[in-house]
Amino acid sequence: MIVRKRLTVQNTIAVIVALIFLVVVLFSFSFIGRRPGAGEQFIRQGVEDTGAVNIVAAIYLNYRLFDTIFEILVFALAVIGVRFHLHAIKDKRPRLKEALFISESHIVRVAGDLLAPVVALIGLFLIVTGHLAPGGGFSGGALLGTVILLLAVARGGERVGRRLNEDVVDRLEQIFLVSIIALSALSPLFGRPFFANFFPLGEPGRLLSGGWILLYNLLIGGKVFIGIWVMMYCFIRHRGDV
């Protein structure tokens, strides 16, 4: 009873604090809309500097590549953490073959087979045209990861997991991560500072343009694809089924 009373008091205080926060912040935001000068420089010089039409991609992978590399490191760290901790809590229950009933729906399987190649193509398209149109390595890679989930739902997680050789996947992930970091460190060899593009810029609007943005999109796409799939496979295996 005392605990419940204390909880009620705590909840009331929480609601009051949140409402005060709401009022204070709402009234402190008085500016919105276009302010000249904020991103003008990137708009004016972005194409000239980087060769990429998509200015967001230009900032993400050229002007502020330093931030992006550490973001990829955080992502890699999360994948390692998920793998490590889900291995630590292995299921205690012994699993018998006859104990598992996988319900297989024909509709789900056919829809999975039909949709998977289409979604995979869209993912690849997003990765490849990241510097010309919205998209890029991360969204394309995550989309490719969900394709594997689609296949796992349609065909069963174990069957899809067996296809992907774990050693090869591990090695590929390491290669992607190392080459993402190493590529940025190669710049001084070409007489440029660290994290600066040393590829030819090309003609803006063409597929082969934008310096190393295309290459980085491919590497990040692969890394994110493998990372998302590895995390998902850990969750699936921990549950025992999709």
Binding site: N54, V56, A57, L126, P134, G135, G136, F138, S139, G140, G141, A142, L143, T146
Partner: peptide, 8 residues
Amino acid sequence: DVALVEVA
């Protein structure tokens, strides 16, 4: 760009 990332 952000919309695509949010969907994925």
